[in-house]
Amino acid sequence: MDFNFSDDQQQLRDAVRRWVDKGYGFERRRAIVAAGGFDRAAYNELAELGLTALTVPEAHGGLGQGAADAMVAMEELGRSIVLEPLAHAFIAARVLSECADDNVQSAWLPRIASGEALVVLAHQERKARYRLDVCEAKAAAAPGGYALTAIKSVVPAGDQADAFLVPAQLDGRIALFLVERSAAGVATRGYLTQDGSRAAELSLTQAPATLATADGLAALELAVDTGIAAACAYAVGAMEQTLAITADYMNQRKQFGVPIASFQALRHRIADMKMQLELARSMSYYASLKLGEEAGERHRALARAKVQLGQSMRFVGQQAVQLHGGIGVTDEYIISHYFKTLTQLEMSWGDTLHHLGEVGARMQDTAGVFA
Rank of each mutant, 00 (worst) to 15 (best):
S106Y: 02
K340E: 13
H60C: 06
D195L: 05
A295E: 13
H337S: 13
M71T: 05
A53R: 14
Q105S: 13
G328A: 01
G326S: 03
T55L: 15
F339R: 07
P167L: 10
D2W: 09
T52G: 08
E27F: 03
M363E: 09
M74A: 10
R298G: 09
D215L: 01
P143E: 09
F3T: 13
L342M: 11
S262Q: 15
S153L: 13
L77R: 04
F3Q: 14
L83C: 03
V258Q: 15
A34T: 03
D331L: 12
D171N: 12
V307I: 02
G296W: 14
A187D: 05
V134M: 10
D351F: 06
D14K: 09
A35S: 12
I327N: 13
F164M: 03
P156I: 09
L243K: 05
D215A: 06
G310S: 03
T188C: 04
K306D: 01
Y285N: 12
Q311H: 01
I91T: 05
D195K: 07
L165T: 00
L356G: 09
E48P: 07
T193N: 14
E221S: 09
P156R: 09
Q276S: 04
S282L: 14
D21Q: 07
L54K: 11
H88L: 06
A244D: 14
D2M: 12
R129H: 12
T52F: 14
I335S: 11
Q318C: 13
P85L: 00
R18K: 07
F3Y: 15
E45T: 08
S114A: 13
G64S: 06
L63G: 03
A175V: 02
A371F: 13
L118K: 07
Q255K: 12
S197P: 02
A140Q: 14
Q252M: 12
P57V: 08
I91E: 02
M273K: 00
V56A: 12
K22E: 14
V258K: 08
A233G: 12
V104S: 00
A100G: 02
V179Y: 01
E180I: 02
V316L: 06
M250R: 11
Q194T: 06
G368L: 06
A93P: 04
D101R: 00
